[in-house]
Amino acid sequence: MKPEEIIKPENKIYSRPRLLDDRNTHYCPGCSHGVVHRIIAELIDEMGLEDKAIGVAPVGCAVFAYNYIDVDWVEAAHGRAPAVATALSRLNPGHLVFSYQGDGDLSAIGTAETIHAANRGENIAIIFINNGIYGMTGGQMAPTTLLGMKTATTPYGRRADLNGYPLRISELLERLDGTCYITRQAVHTAAAVRKTKAAIRKAFENSVAGRGTSVVEIVSTCNSGWKMTPAQSNEWMAEHMFERYPLGDLKNI
């Protein structure tokens, strides 16, 4: 069959998600954010949560997430998304309240809010993009930056004696009694994307059902910050990031 014979509505098996706005994102070519946005838009639609979803956007590259996914959003101050989400969840029970945060937002400036929201077992889903760098401000070191990794503020590579160690915050959150689901995923291959989607679905289900805090860490690329092509970034991530940040469920109860 010729392509034009195949390209018919009845044969369509994958469409651009309805809740993803018809608008180009500001993200760099190949950025993982776009994939995760798409997954979230798909899931909210598939799970019938469009009317009950409230997202909390971070400060960082994803600050404009509210411009791309067609649900209600609050833009939080840097690091404070879990506190904002706490109130939204407590005052709007039964809603899907999720925060979308990067590694600087969640594991540096917002560490206290993250840990305490999780420790209280707030019924929120935290989507955590870990690309080991501050993207928006121009590629500075994040708490999750690997040792030896060059950034704008570690131009000779991160040194443990100067900068401490790459922070595995999901491992910390796993220890807290308030969390019900902690998982680490990636979106560099089609198979990984499917797993991430299943993970976020579970986190969203937990939020709505009031089971406690779920965290889906997504080990991601920042090809602009890493100064590589998108494809090279994926390879580099699989080779280096996964060693420090191994994929899989850390907690699922």
């Binding site: 609050v74 939080a76 101050a77 404070r80 506190a83 904002v84 706490t86 005052l91 809010e113």
Partner: peptide, 26 residues
């Protein structure tokens, strides 16, 4: 009414921000 002892004043005011964003008297 929801009453919550936050982990810090910072968290508390940002909870107020979140609650106020949903139209609640917080």
């Amino acid at each position: 009414m929801v009453v919550l002892q936050a982990e810090s004043e910072l968290a508390a005011i940002n909870m107020v921000y979140g609650g106020a964003a949903s139209g609640k008297a917080v």
